[in-house]
Structure formats: C-alpha cells, structure tokens
Design a protein around this nucleic acid. Structure first.
Lengths: 117, 117
DNA sequence: ATTAGTATTCGACATATTTCGAAATATAGA
DNA sequence: TCTATATTTCGAAATATGTCGAATACTAAT
C-alpha cells in the first residue's frame, strides 16, 4: 500500500492477527487480568505458558505455535522461555494503544467526561 | 470453533475486516469525525459515498465495493443508497464496543480515573 | 548421556482472500 | 427513452492462510 504509513501497517497486522477465532481466544485469555469480582495486581501481568493457553482449544500443538508466532509478530503479545516452558503475556501499552484507536470523542463527551482539545 | 460464542465470532469478523490495509484506511476515514483542532458536531456522523472513500486509493471500483461489503457484513459500517450514490458511516456504538474490548483496568487505575467493580 | 516434557520448524494440502476486468444494475437528468 | 454517473455482481487468477503430522530443538531431571 503506497498510502499506508508504518504505524497503520502494524495496526492492520494486529487486527489481522485478532481476526482468527483461535488467536482472538488466546488474546482474550491473556488480557483478562483478573477474574470477575476480583482486583488486579498492579505489579502483575497475566502470564500463561504455551501449553496452558492451548488447554481446551482443539488444535494441534504445531498450530498453536503458529498462532502464537503470528500474535507475537504482529506485536500483540510478548513471549519468553522460562525453563521448559515459554510464557506469554500482553504489554498493557498495547491494550491502551488499541483502545485509543477506537476512542470516540463524540460519544464520550455525551457522558460528560471531558472536552475535545 | 466449538468454544467460541456468537459475540466473539462477530468480534473476530470485525478484526478480520480491519486486518486488511485498504479496509483499515476506509474505516479510519469514516471514524475521523472531525479535523484536527476542530469540534465534532454531536448530531452528525461522518458520512462518505463509496466514490469518495475510494479517492486516493489505487484499487478498482469492484475491489472497493468488495471491501465495503466486507466491512458491512462484519458489522463495522452502515450503508444506504442516497440517489446515485451509496453513503457509508460508522455507528458510534461500534467504536465504543471495540474500545471497550481493549479497555485495561490496570493502566487506567494508574491514571486515577476510577476503581474496579 | 538418556529420558521425558514442552514447544517449534518443516512440508504438504485444502481452503480463503485479494484483486481485476467485463458485464450488469440503479439512479437522475436531458 | 436514452445517456451519463455510480456502484455491484460475476468469474478467474494469483497469493495467503489454517491446519496437520513428522521431525527437530530446548530444558530439567535422572
């Protein structure tokens, strides 16, 4: 795309990654920082090993690995080996960036939150 | 996907639609409700005709039409014929739903906005 | 060193997506 | 009705994606 800057290109990559139901499910598991009714620990990011993330998803390990690689390549998740396992988590800044992309000043001003600059 | 509810399925459809750079650009054009430094009109949703949306994008009209259909099918945009033209716009509720998906209670509590239920 | 557990790479196949041009459809106006 | 403008549908081709099984790599413990 000639008229697509690098920033938008990465954004499209992220959305493409989330466009697959398996990958969306993985992302949701990682972004649920706390259970309903509980508090989140400020110092703690939700981490799951590759194996844990695959629990309940009926896909082959190789397929799971492929999806995690896509999520990582797009910039949605972080990964690092911890002994035998590989842990995955989401950098909170990613959530903020994506939420900000959809932020709607019209609707939110209706709620009386703040003004538009 | 057996373990994917209808809601998540539609969410994945939306992200898949945004995963294409051309479609992301169209969506961005429609979601920019006002120019930098200006105010948005509360009563007005940003509308563009199919032809206007294609301006500057080097794709065939048939391709543009295809992408708009995808955006519409996923639930991201609305379309309605207005004479010779077909107008497109985004329902603000869609923006809120998507922003909410990425909403991060941890980061936002750091900003002192509010507490977690 | 061997083994067991965990995860990735590779090669292959089926299916989906992107894209176009040509033809068709819809609408407003002469 | 005929024409010009705007958009969609259709069919085809090239490319990308999702999936698996088999083989490979990494790590910890025996």
């Amino acid at each position: 795309m000639s008229n697509t800057n690098p920033d938008d290109k990465q954004l499209a990559e992220m959305f493409k990654a989330l466009g697959n139901p398996h990958r969306l499910l993985i992302f949701q598991r990682l972004s649920n920082c706390c259970l309903p009714g509980t508090r989140c620990d400020l110092e703690q990011t939700m981490r799951f090993s590759v194996g844990q993330l695959g629990k309940g998803m009926e896909i082959a390990p190789s397929t799971l690995s492929h999806h995690l690689k896509e999520l990582h390549r797009s910039g949605l998740i972080e990964m690092s080996r911890q002994g035998k396992r590989v842990d995955c988590w989401i950098d909170p800044a990613v959530l903020n960036r994506l939420a900000g992309f959809f932020y709607n000043p019209i609707e939110n001003r209706l709620r009386g939150d703040r003004d538009v600059g």
